[in-house]
């Protein structure tokens, strides 16, 4: 009897502790998704009553909406560029500063600091640095003779490169911390025995560090793919997706459909909640598909540590 009471009390405690998270998850994740699923079949501008349009929103996505597909292409370029640069860079930085000394702790904090800064504020600062007419970047490049004329960093040809640079700067600290967590899981004894065996630094990196980081790397890459596909804040502030949709990405486009006043590229006089819901669902499917492909291809990473 007492046992039963105890187990009931345990269950109540468990669910009481789970409840806040669960409720928040239901309210901030499940409800918006159900909302999107419901509204992807309607035309709704927030003013007039929602009108059921069947599959018309999807027909528009797949047959008439060139801006969206441009945004999808841009997202792939942006995400690939960001991941290719940020992951190796974060790994190298983590390897270099993974030492239990106070100075390295300070360096870690400095590198991590962009992660906790507002992306919107930093995008404004970067605008001052990158603008073509009096930006510090051009001033420096011209001073050291790397270019004679100012580079139009936010122009059609360079805007994507610029937003990738800013995004890498903003996220390197985050991935560095993930790598540090992974590195600190590797038993020091393994390096000590490798040292006794006379292994070189390169051998230790490729024979111990990388294989044992395999499962962590898999998670880091998965997270980096998801975050890169969903990243839009700095782009929104810096270029609003322009010029000519050159930096418009999937979720920025969704945002533009939801907020008519921000239609730098969405080109709408009215919010398009129904269409925006359909676009966000298709975008989620694209991200899901990319992640599935990645998980399939990355199966070997699990085996590295075996």
């Amino acid at each position: 009897m007492r046992k039963k009471k105890r187990s009931t009390r345990g269950l109540v405690q468990t669910y009481a502790m789970l409840a806040p998270n669960l409720l928040l998850f239901l309210a901030t994740s499940v409800y918006p998704i159900l909302w999107a699923l419901r509204y992807m079949f309607v035309e709704y501008d927030g003013i007039n009553p929602a009108k059921f349009v069947g599959l018309d929103n999807f027909v528009r996505i797949f047959t008439r909406d060139d801006v969206y597909w441009q945004a999808v292409r841009n997202t792939l370029v942006f995400a690939s560029g960001k991941i290719i640069i940020v992951i190796p860079l974060a790994f190298i930085v983590a390897i270099l500063i993974n030492k239990p000394k106070r100075l390295y702790g300070f360096v870690q904090a400095v590198i991590f600091s962009p992660t906790i800064m507002s992306a919107a504020v930093m995008a404004l600062v970067f605008y001052l640095l990158f603008n073509v007419y009096n930006g510090e970047i051009n001033r420096m490049l011209m001073a050291i003779g790397l270019t004679k004329i100012p580079i139009n960093w936010l122009g059609f040809d360079m805007a994507m490169v610029t937003v990738i640079i800013i995004s890498v700067w903003g996220s390197i600290g985050n991935y560095m911390v993930y790598f540090l967590a992974g590195l600190q899981q590797i038993p020091l004894e393994m390096y000590e025995s490798a040292d006794i065996d006379g292994a070189s630094t390169r051998q230790k990196l490729f024979r111990i560090t990388l294989p044992l980081l395999g499962p962590v790397l898999k998670i880091i890459l998965m997270l980096s793919i998801i975050f890169a596909f969903m990243d839009m804040q700095s782009i929104m502030v810096l270029t609003q997706g322009g010029p000519f949709q050159a930096t418009n990405v999937m979720y920025l486009y969704v945002y533009q459909l939801y907020y008519s006043s921000s239609s730098a590229g969405g080109g709408s006089f009215r919010p398009q909640y129904g269409y925006g819901a359909a676009v966000s669902v298709v975008s989620a499917c694209i991200v899901g598909a990319v992640t599935v492909i990645y998980l399939f291809l990355s199966r070997k990473l699990d085996k590295l540590s075996d």
């Binding site: 918006p32 998704i33 509204y39 007039n48 969704v254 669902v281 989620a284 899901g288 992640t291 599935v292």
Partner: peptide, 28 residues
């Protein structure tokens, strides 16, 4: 595990990108 992960990802991405003002479903 893979299926659960993918479902969670879909949930996360659909939620994160298409965030909307609450209450937009009831104009009247």
């Amino acid at each position: 595990l893979t299926t659960i992960t993918v479902l969670l990802l879909l949930l996360l991405t659909a939620c994160g990108g298409g965030s909307t003002p609450s209450g937009t479903d009831s104009p009247s």
